[in-house]
Design a binder for these strands. Structure first.
Lengths: 198, 198
DNA sequence: ATCTTATGATACTCTATAAATCATAAAGTT
DNA sequence: AACTTTATGATTTATAGAGTATCATAAGAT
């Protein structure tokens, strides 16, 4: 108990209700104030559940956060191979669509403290996807690892900028911006697509 | 009292000694463990000063952090105009040299929590410098504000990557990488230098 | 209808923050 | 060198929040 990684589909309505309420409370509150200032008591008050109940599901606020963001990993894991693969134009746009559908959750991911390593996991996933689709140009002045890190973090930066400015452009436009500012320059300078064997 | 913004050059040796010890202790400890896990007691023990003494100089660890990073702003403020100006090649390299001379301090700046707004201040400084030197291309598909944010945060990301990988390349090489991956693509896609009037 | 268990309320321990006090020592001043 | 000022160290106190334990109840599962 008190472990969100026990994520087998729980049947008990009470459990699902409590977790849903606490999740929603955290998403709501992080839109209003910094994460570090949020106490367990605030969360349980907002979610209308008992204080001790929190600890029956999560070991800490960070644990709750982890559980929430884990859901995003699943979505991203499906998109990233195509993002780095044959049609990056479409895939980048798809991610921005995902963000627009769950802005609170992505805000959580992007604003989470570095020490939780939530972003690092995304970077790791993106790295694997990129390396599967691209290889270093033999003549490149830019090392492969720097380039990959730059590409993924710039993508995340674009999402963060878009969210913090209330998503002023369409997902398609943001996808195009990513291609113009990051991906195409990267292809020109450092990486080339691997030869696909299909 | 208890305010680091009282940064007029203090003459009292005891004051300067205490602040130096506490500063060094924080820099040292953040290299070993996440900032949030560091307590006042740990800091004062490491710095070999009394516990209450901390509060005679700083209101909180965040306040101490702010004081440390303020010094970096001064250095950066001198470099940024030239970074965005006539010779970005040299200036980018200069910043990497600065980082190599004070890795602990820059680590502090880059790893500090978002809620402190320390990085935001750097982004703001960089934005002003960039806008002073560049203007939007009339035909650009990429909006000006996104571009500027991307440029500056990518620069900071490069520094962060370099630090976290123990600075494997020379500052000159990192400056070149910044030009290849970020600045030149940006100039090609979105911005052009303002006409200088000298 | 019965069994099972998640919940709410409460009390308690522990840790860390933050402020206050006072004798001492170390700095600055003449 | 003698004097004055004040920063420091040690200690105490109050407060807030994390995290654990207990028990009667209510709500869901079967």
């Amino acid at each position: 108990m008190a472990n969100s990684s026990t994520s087998l589909p729980h049947t008990d309505l009470r459990i699902r209700r409590t977790r849903r309420l606490l999740t929603q409370a955290l998403v709501d509150m992080t839109a209003e104030r910094p994460l570090e200032t949020i106490t367990i008591r605030m969360l349980t008050d907002r979610a209308q559940v008992g204080y001790a109940t929190f600890y029956r599901h999560y070991a800490s606020i960070e644990d709750l956060l982890r559980g929430i963001v884990d859901d995003l990993y699943i979505n991203l894991a499906e998109l990233l191979p195509s993002l780095a693969g044959a049609q990056p134009e479409r895939a980048a746009t798809l991610v921005f669509h995902q963000v627009r559908e769950h802005p609170g959750h992505y805000r959580l991911l992007l604003h989470a403290d570095r020490s939780l390593g939530l972003l690092d996991k995304v970077v790791e996933m993106g790295t694997q996807a990129l390396l599967a689709a691209y290889e270093a140009r033999p003549d490149s002045r830019v090392p492969l690892d720097v380039t990959v890190d730059h590409c993924i973090r710039s993508f995340l930066n674009l999402i963060a900028w878009w969210l913090s400015h209330d998503m002023p452009y369409a997902p398609e436009r943001m996808g195009q911006i990513f291609l113009d500012l990051v991906l195409h320059p990267m292809e020109a300078m450092a990486l080339r697509p691997r030869i696909s064997l299909d």
